[in-house]
Amino acid sequence: MDTNKNSYTFIFAIVMVVVVAFVLSFAATSLKPLQDANVKLEKMQNILKTVGVVVSREEAEKVFTDYVKSGVVVDPTGKVIEEAKGVDIEGGLAFKGDVKHAVSKKQYPIFIAEVKGKTFYVIPIYGSGMWNDIWGNVALESDKNTIAGVNFDHKGETAGLGAEISTNEFQKEWKGKQIMKDSNGSFTKENFASVSAVKGGADASNTHGVDAISGGTVTSDAVSSMFKDRVELYLPYFNNLK
Protein backbone atom coordinates (compact mmCIF):
# COMPACT_ATOMS: atom_id res chain seq x y z
CA MET A 1 0.00 0.00 0.00
CA ASP A 2 1.38 3.37 -0.99
CA THR A 3 0.79 5.59 1.99
CA ASN A 4 2.04 8.63 0.12
CA LYS A 5 -0.74 8.75 -2.45
CA ASN A 6 -3.04 11.76 -2.22
CA SER A 7 -6.18 9.64 -2.24
CA TYR A 8 -4.84 7.48 0.57
CA THR A 9 -4.01 10.56 2.66
CA PHE A 10 -7.51 11.93 2.19
CA ILE A 11 -9.22 8.66 3.05
CA PHE A 12 -7.01 8.17 6.09
CA ALA A 13 -7.79 11.64 7.36
CA ILE A 14 -11.53 11.26 6.83
CA VAL A 15 -11.71 7.84 8.50
CA MET A 16 -9.61 9.00 11.43
CA VAL A 17 -11.70 12.10 12.05
CA VAL A 18 -14.96 10.16 11.87
CA VAL A 19 -13.71 7.50 14.27
CA VAL A 20 -12.39 10.06 16.75
CA ALA A 21 -15.58 12.12 16.53
CA PHE A 22 -17.66 9.03 17.19
CA VAL A 23 -15.58 7.95 20.20
CA LEU A 24 -15.59 11.42 21.76
CA SER A 25 -19.27 12.09 21.27
CA PHE A 26 -20.07 8.68 22.67
CA ALA A 27 -17.95 9.40 25.75
CA ALA A 28 -19.38 12.89 26.17
CA THR A 29 -23.04 11.89 25.89
CA SER A 30 -22.72 8.78 28.04
CA LEU A 31 -20.88 10.65 30.81
CA LYS A 32 -23.09 13.76 30.64
CA PRO A 33 -25.71 12.61 33.20
CA LEU A 34 -22.98 11.85 35.73
CA GLN A 35 -21.30 15.19 35.12
CA ASP A 36 -24.56 17.13 35.38
CA ALA A 37 -25.39 15.33 38.60
CA ASN A 38 -22.02 16.38 40.02
CA VAL A 39 -22.61 20.00 39.08
CA LYS A 40 -26.12 19.96 40.58
CA LEU A 41 -24.95 18.35 43.83
CA GLU A 42 -22.14 20.84 44.13
CA LYS A 43 -24.56 23.73 43.72
CA MET A 44 -26.75 22.32 46.48
CA GLN A 45 -23.74 21.71 48.68
CA ASN A 46 -22.54 25.29 48.19
CA ILE A 47 -25.92 26.82 48.98
CA LEU A 48 -26.19 24.72 52.14
CA LYS A 49 -22.67 25.66 53.16
CA THR A 50 -23.44 29.37 53.19
CA VAL A 51 -26.26 28.85 55.72
CA GLY A 52 -24.00 26.80 57.96
CA VAL A 53 -25.04 23.30 56.88
CA VAL A 54 -21.88 21.40 55.96
CA VAL A 55 -22.61 18.12 54.20
CA SER A 56 -20.79 15.94 51.72
CA ARG A 57 -21.73 16.24 48.06
CA GLU A 58 -23.54 12.90 48.14
CA GLU A 59 -25.70 13.91 51.11
CA ALA A 60 -26.50 17.36 49.76
CA GLU A 61 -29.39 16.18 47.62
CA LYS A 62 -31.12 14.35 50.47
CA VAL A 63 -31.09 17.20 52.93
CA PHE A 64 -31.41 20.09 50.46
CA THR A 65 -35.18 20.55 50.77
CA ASP A 66 -35.03 20.08 54.56
CA TYR A 67 -33.33 23.44 54.73
CA VAL A 68 -34.05 25.29 51.52
CA LYS A 69 -37.73 26.12 51.52
CA SER A 70 -38.19 27.97 48.25
CA GLY A 71 -36.43 29.15 45.13
CA VAL A 72 -37.64 32.56 44.02
CA VAL A 73 -36.98 34.54 40.87
CA VAL A 74 -37.46 38.30 41.08
CA ASP A 75 -37.40 41.06 38.47
CA PRO A 76 -35.57 44.43 38.71
CA THR A 77 -38.53 46.05 40.46
CA GLY A 78 -38.47 43.39 43.14
CA LYS A 79 -41.60 41.62 41.93
CA VAL A 80 -41.64 37.84 42.28
CA ILE A 81 -41.77 36.19 38.85
CA GLU A 82 -41.68 32.59 39.97
CA GLU A 83 -41.64 30.80 43.27
CA ALA A 84 -40.90 27.10 43.56
CA LYS A 85 -41.32 25.36 46.90
CA GLY A 86 -40.09 22.08 48.35
CA VAL A 87 -39.30 19.36 45.85
CA ASP A 88 -40.14 21.71 42.96
CA ILE A 89 -37.12 23.93 43.71
CA GLU A 90 -34.79 21.64 41.79
CA GLY A 91 -36.83 22.05 38.61
CA GLY A 92 -37.59 25.72 39.19
CA LEU A 93 -36.12 28.65 37.34
CA ALA A 94 -34.18 29.86 40.39
CA PHE A 95 -32.19 26.64 40.61
CA LYS A 96 -31.98 25.72 36.95
CA GLY A 97 -31.61 29.23 35.54
CA ASP A 98 -28.27 30.50 34.32
CA VAL A 99 -26.79 32.75 37.02
CA LYS A 100 -24.22 34.15 34.63
CA HIS A 101 -26.85 35.74 32.40
CA ALA A 102 -29.35 36.55 35.14
CA VAL A 103 -28.66 40.27 34.73
CA SER A 104 -29.32 40.49 30.99
CA LYS A 105 -32.43 38.31 31.33
CA LYS A 106 -33.63 40.43 34.28
CA GLN A 107 -34.40 37.27 36.23
CA TYR A 108 -32.65 37.29 39.58
CA PRO A 109 -32.68 34.00 41.50
CA ILE A 110 -32.73 33.89 45.31
CA PHE A 111 -33.23 31.01 47.72
CA ILE A 112 -35.01 31.18 51.04
CA ALA A 113 -33.71 28.74 53.61
CA GLU A 114 -34.67 27.90 57.16
CA VAL A 115 -32.13 26.50 59.56
CA LYS A 116 -32.99 25.97 63.22
CA GLY A 117 -35.96 28.34 63.00
CA LYS A 118 -33.92 31.13 61.43
CA THR A 119 -34.61 32.42 57.92
CA PHE A 120 -31.79 32.99 55.44
CA TYR A 121 -31.73 34.55 51.99
CA VAL A 122 -29.17 32.99 49.65
CA ILE A 123 -28.15 34.96 46.55
CA PRO A 124 -26.17 33.23 43.81
CA ILE A 125 -23.59 35.59 42.32
CA TYR A 126 -21.42 35.49 39.22
CA GLY A 127 -18.66 37.67 37.80
CA SER A 128 -15.30 37.84 36.06
CA GLY A 129 -12.05 37.20 37.89
CA MET A 130 -8.54 37.86 36.69
CA TRP A 131 -8.30 34.98 34.23
CA ASN A 132 -11.78 33.55 33.99
CA ASP A 133 -15.21 33.41 35.60
CA ILE A 134 -15.75 33.53 39.35
CA TRP A 135 -18.99 32.78 41.16
CA GLY A 136 -20.46 32.00 44.53
CA ASN A 137 -23.35 32.32 46.92
CA VAL A 138 -24.09 34.93 49.59
CA ALA A 139 -26.36 34.07 52.50
CA LEU A 140 -27.98 36.96 54.39
CA GLU A 141 -29.66 36.64 57.74
CA SER A 142 -33.34 37.42 58.21
CA ASP A 143 -32.54 41.14 58.56
CA LYS A 144 -31.30 40.96 54.92
CA ASN A 145 -28.31 43.00 56.03
CA THR A 146 -25.92 40.76 57.94
CA ILE A 147 -23.93 38.16 56.03
CA ALA A 148 -24.47 34.66 57.41
CA GLY A 149 -21.95 33.03 55.12
CA VAL A 150 -20.46 33.13 51.62
CA ASN A 151 -18.75 30.80 49.29
CA PHE A 152 -16.73 31.63 46.22
CA ASP A 153 -15.33 29.50 43.48
CA HIS A 154 -13.41 30.15 40.31
CA LYS A 155 -12.50 28.62 37.01
CA GLY A 156 -8.87 29.55 36.60
CA GLU A 157 -7.50 32.04 39.14
CA THR A 158 -3.79 31.78 40.00
CA ALA A 159 -3.20 28.85 42.33
CA GLY A 160 -1.96 30.00 45.73
CA LEU A 161 -2.93 33.63 45.05
CA GLY A 162 -6.29 34.53 43.53
CA ALA A 163 -7.45 30.95 43.87
CA GLU A 164 -7.44 31.45 47.65
CA ILE A 165 -10.92 32.99 47.34
CA SER A 166 -12.28 29.45 47.40
CA THR A 167 -10.69 28.69 50.78
CA ASN A 168 -12.45 28.81 54.13
CA GLU A 169 -9.87 31.25 55.48
CA PHE A 170 -10.98 33.90 53.04
CA GLN A 171 -14.69 33.11 53.15
CA LYS A 172 -15.13 33.00 56.92
CA GLU A 173 -14.09 36.65 57.15
CA TRP A 174 -17.26 37.72 55.36
CA LYS A 175 -19.50 36.32 58.07
CA GLY A 176 -21.14 39.02 60.19
CA LYS A 177 -20.31 41.88 57.80
CA GLN A 178 -23.15 44.18 56.83
CA ILE A 179 -24.23 45.25 53.37
CA MET A 180 -26.19 48.37 54.35
CA LYS A 181 -24.72 51.60 55.75
CA ASP A 182 -27.57 52.14 58.20
CA SER A 183 -28.84 48.80 59.44
CA ASN A 184 -32.23 50.33 60.23
CA GLY A 185 -32.55 52.26 56.99
CA SER A 186 -34.40 51.19 53.90
CA PHE A 187 -32.95 49.07 51.09
CA THR A 188 -32.05 51.88 48.73
CA LYS A 189 -28.98 52.28 46.55
CA GLU A 190 -27.91 55.27 48.64
CA ASN A 191 -27.94 53.19 51.78
CA PHE A 192 -26.17 50.22 50.13
CA ALA A 193 -22.54 49.90 51.21
CA SER A 194 -21.70 46.38 49.98
CA VAL A 195 -18.72 44.53 51.39
CA SER A 196 -15.34 44.65 49.76
CA ALA A 197 -11.93 43.08 50.13
CA VAL A 198 -9.49 45.72 51.35
CA LYS A 199 -5.89 45.60 50.18
CA GLY A 200 -3.48 45.63 53.10
CA GLY A 201 -6.13 44.32 55.48
CA ALA A 202 -9.44 45.64 56.74
CA ASP A 203 -9.83 47.08 60.20
CA ALA A 204 -11.68 44.74 62.57
CA SER A 205 -14.23 47.49 63.23
CA ASN A 206 -14.94 47.86 59.49
CA THR A 207 -18.31 46.22 58.98
CA HIS A 208 -18.10 46.61 55.20
CA GLY A 209 -14.58 45.30 54.59
CA VAL A 210 -12.60 42.07 54.75
CA ASP A 211 -8.89 41.38 54.24
CA ALA A 212 -7.96 41.05 50.59
CA ILE A 213 -5.63 38.25 49.51
CA SER A 214 -2.02 39.35 49.40
CA GLY A 215 -0.73 38.82 45.89
CA GLY A 216 -4.27 38.33 44.67
CA THR A 217 -5.40 41.95 44.41
CA VAL A 218 -7.04 41.69 41.00
CA THR A 219 -9.08 38.65 42.03
CA SER A 220 -9.96 40.24 45.39
CA ASP A 221 -11.20 43.36 43.63
CA ALA A 222 -13.15 41.19 41.20
CA VAL A 223 -14.87 39.46 44.12
CA SER A 224 -15.74 42.85 45.64
CA SER A 225 -17.29 44.17 42.45
CA MET A 226 -19.09 40.89 41.75
CA PHE A 227 -20.55 41.06 45.25
CA LYS A 228 -21.62 44.69 44.87
CA ASP A 229 -23.06 44.35 41.36
CA ARG A 230 -25.09 41.27 42.11
CA VAL A 231 -26.34 41.87 45.65
CA GLU A 232 -27.45 45.39 44.71
CA LEU A 233 -30.00 43.91 42.28
CA TYR A 234 -32.03 42.45 45.14
CA LEU A 235 -32.56 45.70 47.06
CA PRO A 236 -36.05 46.37 45.55
CA TYR A 237 -37.06 42.83 46.48
CA PHE A 238 -35.85 43.30 50.05
CA ASN A 239 -37.77 46.57 50.22
CA ASN A 240 -40.94 44.81 49.10
CA LEU A 241 -40.44 42.14 51.74
CA LYS A 242 -40.08 44.72 54.48
Binding site: M1, T3, N4, Y8, T9, F12, A13, M16, V17, V20, V23, L24, A27, A28
Partner: peptide
Protein backbone atom coordinates in the same frame (compact mmCIF):
# COMPACT_ATOMS: atom_id res chain seq x y z
CA UNK B 1 2.86 3.64 12.49
CA UNK B 2 2.78 1.74 9.21
CA UNK B 3 -0.47 3.19 7.92
CA UNK B 4 -0.04 6.86 8.88
CA UNK B 5 0.64 8.95 5.76
CA UNK B 6 3.90 10.69 6.61
CA UNK B 7 2.75 14.01 5.18
CA UNK B 8 0.00 14.39 7.76
CA UNK B 9 1.63 12.52 10.63
CA UNK B 10 1.88 15.58 12.90
CA UNK B 11 -1.83 16.24 12.47
CA UNK B 12 -2.59 12.59 13.18
CA UNK B 13 -0.51 12.80 16.37
CA UNK B 14 -2.33 15.96 17.40
CA UNK B 15 -5.73 14.35 16.86
CA UNK B 16 -4.72 11.31 18.92
CA UNK B 17 -3.39 13.35 21.84
CA UNK B 18 -6.31 15.77 21.77
CA UNK B 19 -8.84 12.94 21.73
CA UNK B 20 -7.14 11.22 24.67
CA UNK B 21 -6.95 14.42 26.66
CA UNK B 22 -10.64 15.16 26.13
CA UNK B 23 -11.42 11.61 27.25
Amino acid sequence: RNIIPSRIRIIVQLVVVAALVIL
